[in-house]
């Protein structure tokens, strides 16, 4: 077994070394990075897409399908975790007198430290503002839907840790839970069909000057959906894995 593992590692390592040796030197102007689509994105990206942030342009316009499937992948991860039997199984409710008290005791055997409670409560609004700023400014500066989703999701997890499961669950309204979880893929598909109607291409964005507002609106809707849907999915992943089994 050990010899087999060693042989496997050697073969993989040799393949990687050969592959790396075949790469063009770093910064080579004739390398494939500079001779294929990259140069065109850099030179004409802004004019072609009408978006000011080139990263956003590549993410949503040139590579829209990749981003769409990326959103679907995150959603699939949540579906997979929720499909685990332990994620949705509820512990049997304790009966008789003092049921509520014992239930609470089992839920958080260790009371939350007042220091951590205070600091998380104090920092949460600032984290939220940072996430919103990263979403809003993502138009022109680094940041955007995915980053903001990760930050909001982390904030929701931190709040869930100090406030307890019941309160954290209330952050996501029960009726809208399923819709919010699927928000990213749903909105992406909707925008893709709108683009189809407008330009004749699935996920197409109207590029002409007159459609400026519409194009911006499509991008903003997509980014907000990625941020909200992604944050809800991250928080739900945490809740599902944290569920008492």
């Amino acid at each position: 077994m050990r010899t087999f593992a060693l042989a496997l590692v050697l073969v993989v390592a040799a393949t990687m070394v050969i592959g790396i040796a075949g790469l063009p030197p770093h910064g080579d102007p004739d390398g494939p990075v500079h001779t294929h689509v990259g140069a065109r994105y850099l030179e004409q990206g802004v004019a072609e897409t009408g978006l000011r942030n080139l990263v956003t342009a590549v993410l949503l316009v040139y590579r829209g399908f990749d981003t769409f499937l990326e959103v679907v992948v995150i959603f699939t991860a949540l579906v997979a975790v929720l499909a685990l039997p332990s994620a949705t199984r509820q512990p049997p409710p304790p009966r008789g007198e003092g049921a509520a008290a014992s239930r609470r005791e089992a839920d958080d055997a260790v009371p939350v430290s007042p220091v951590v409670f205070l600091v998380v409560r104090l920092l949460a609004p600032f984290i939220a503002v940072f996430a919103l700023a990263s979403l809003y400014r993502g138009h022109v500066t680094p940041g955007g839907g995915f980053q903001s989703a990760a930050i909001i999701g982390a904030m929701m997890i931190a709040l869930g840790l100090v406030f307890g499961r019941e309160h954290a669950a209330r952050l996501v309204p029960h009726g809208a839970k399923a819709w919010l979880q699927a928000l990213g893929p749903l909105v992406f598909a909707a925008v893709a069909f709108v683009g189809w109607r407008l330009t004749g291409a699935f996920l197409g964005f109207p590029a002409d000057e007159a459609a400026y507002a519409l194009r911006e609106a499509m991008v903003v809707v997509l980014e907000v959906a990625i941020a909200v849907g992604g944050a809800v999915i991250l928080a739900q992943l945490f809740m599902a894995l944290d569920a008492p089994s």
Binding site: V110, S113, V115
Partner: peptide, 20 residues
């Protein structure tokens, strides 16, 4: 400010968890 606030909180949480 963030570092000064969050650092001691983390240390406190760590020590508390170890104690518990």
């Amino acid at each position: 400010i963030l570092v000064v606030v969050s650092g001691p909180t983390t240390a406190h949480a760590l020590a508390r968890a170890a104690m518990r």
